[in-house]
Design a protein around this nucleic acid. Structure first.
Ligand SMILES: [Zn+2]
Ligand SMILES: [Zn+2]
Ligand SMILES: [Zn+2]
Ligand SMILES: [Zn+2]
Lengths: 140, 140
DNA sequence: AAAAATTTGTTATATTATAACACTATACTC
DNA sequence: GAGTATAGTGTTATAATATAACAAATTTTT
């Protein structure tokens, strides 16, 4: 087996699997109730798996929603800083991968010259599909 | 009285006062326990005040901390998008006011060309004072 | 195989936030 | 200024999110 990618534990796999199956971010207790049939019985089992999956970069936490989403960038085996767009209407979340924006953020220094080792950025707006629906509705 | 700045209600004033007195962000239940002597007895009274204060821009919510901090920019009477720097070590939070960064964020469009109407950005690092302390400690 | 590190299972509890409802104060309209 | 709409209050109960603590089992390293 590949040295770097130590395989995931049973619970970690179950939790990751469920998160990856969902297009939208999922909440911890929703994960719990959906994986109980697989033998995960209590919150700590879910939260531990989440912590680990975040640590290794397989998933990210969407801070403003207390929810969790699979990483869509690269081959998902390095933790990294995140930029999300979040639809105010349907709450769908997309991970943004914009080199120029990343560079701006990476290079940012505050007044003291402090170098930051991480960031989290969430954009809020109306996604294309929701915007179209709104336009549809005004027609009637 | 000034038309625009309708004065705050009693509970709103009490909560804002407490938040403004603190350099660091404060948690809802810490606010509660600290203002009980002023007649605020239960969580909903705090959360309602917080909601209103956020809505009018007097305070901001620090998403990654579930905490609340007074706005330090302008005269605090317009809600606005936020950029914070958060110290990993002492958890102190500063509101960043950097026109160039603001412009970059304001102008950002995703692949679909979606225009975002809001964002929240949190930078994580070690503040100057904590960094100095760390250097101090390695000397001994 | 022994020791160390990680993961698991479990119970209980802490922390953060909202629902629901009756009531009061304030602002707005005529 | 009476009537009405809007916003705020006080209260109880409960929902939703997250962690502490501890014993047992598993996996990895030595
Ligand atoms: Zn990612
Ligand atoms: Zn949408
Ligand atoms: Zn501000
Ligand atoms: Zn610090």
């Amino acid at each position: 087996m590949d040295k770097k990618s130590k395989s995931l534990s049973k619970n970690q796999k179950i939790v990751l699997d469920f998160i990856q199956k969902n297009k939208k971010p999922v909440k911890a207790y929703s994960i719990l109730s959906n994986v109980q049939k697989k033998g995960i019985n209590a919150p700590p089992q879910v939260y531990r798996a989440l912590d680990k999956l975040i640590e290794i970069g397989k998933i990210h936490r969407v801070e403003s929603q207390n929810s969790f989403v699979a990483c869509k960038i690269s081959n998902c085996n390095t933790p990294h800083k995140t930029v999300f767009s979040i639809c105010n209407s349907c709450e769908i979340v997309s991970e943004i991968n914009d080199p120029k924006l990343f560079k701006n953020l990476k290079d940012f220094r505050d007044k003291d010259g402090t170098v930051f080792d991480g960031y989290n950025l969430e954009f809020f707006g109306t996604c294309k599909s929701c915007k179209n629906k709104q336009i549809e509705n005004t027609k009637h």
